[in-house]
Each structure stands twice: as structure tokens, then as C-alpha cells.
Write a protein that binds this DNA or RNA. Structure first.
Length: 113
DNA sequence: TGGGTGACCATAG
DNA sequence: ACTATGGCCACCC
């Protein structure tokens, strides 16, 4: 692993990129996957700079524990996040994912070290 | 070095 | 049901 000042962010981006199309996960799940010591806030912080990354980060697939599109405000257009999700077959209403349990993708379970 | 901030989460009243 | 608060930990100045 290349040692960078933001090695943590890279790991977060890596996991986010691994999220299958049509699936979503939560900040807490990613934080838990990287290690319980990591707080979910840091994951959100990583997403904040995600748009600045060279690689495309499907940040629209990352939601909070409640399934709400809390980060939509950080997209170029607030509607973009919802549209991207619906484009992948995920229904979104009132800034929240419908049937979250059905689309939920937990890296701890799916990637299972 | 230290304080402020945050796209979160859980608990308490 | 809602708001308030603390904890969490990496990043930026």
C-alpha cells in the first residue's frame, strides 16, 4: 500500500467503488469495515473530497444509517443523487431510499475479510 | 500544538 | 414525535 497522508480516504474510496450497481451502504458500515476505531464522520469527510478525486466515486450509493440522502447537498446538483439512484433501480422518496434493507450492501458482510 | 469542523450514530429528556 | 448533547477520529489552519 502506498503511504499517503490520506491513506484512510483511499480505503474509503476503494470500498465505495466496490459497491455494486443498484446497491447502497452507509457511512457507519464503511467505518466499521475499515475498523471500529474509525468514526463514521471521517467516512463522510472522505466523501467530501471524493469529488476532487481523479477516479469516479459513486458517492450517491453511500447513505446514512437511516437511508437518507444526507449528502445530496454536496453534489453538483441536489437532485443528481436521487436521479442516479433511481437510474440504478433504487426508488427514492422524500430524500430516503425505499426498501433500504433490500438494497443494503454491507462491506463487512459482502467483503468479509 | 491545539482548536474547530464534519455527507454520522446513539442516547437521553 | 422532536431537539440536545456527547463521542467518535481524521483533516485543515
Amino acid at each position: 500500500m502506498a503511504k499517503t497522508k490520506s491513506d484512510f480516504f483511499e480505503q474509503v474510496f476503494q470500498v465505495v467503488r466496490l459497491i455494486p450497481k443498484g446497491r447502497v451502504t452507509s457511512y457507519g458500515a464503511i467505518a466499521n469495515y475499515l475498523g471500529a476505531k474509525s468514526s463514521s464522520r471521517v467516512v463522510g469527510y472522505a466523501m467530501n473530497v471524493a469529488h476532487s478525486q481523479k477516479e469516479y466515486i459513486p458517492a450517491h450509493r453511500v447513505l446514512n444509517r437511516n437511508g437518507q440522502l444526507t449528502g445530496k447537498n454536496h453534489f453538483n446538483n441536489p437532485y443528481l443523487m436521487q436521479e442516479l439512484l433511481e437510474k440504478e433501480g433504487i426508488k427514492v422518496e422524500n430524500d430516503a431510499v425505499v426498501n433500504l434493507k433490500k438494497y443494503y450492501w454491507d462491506p463487512v458482510i459482502e467483503l468479509k475479510l
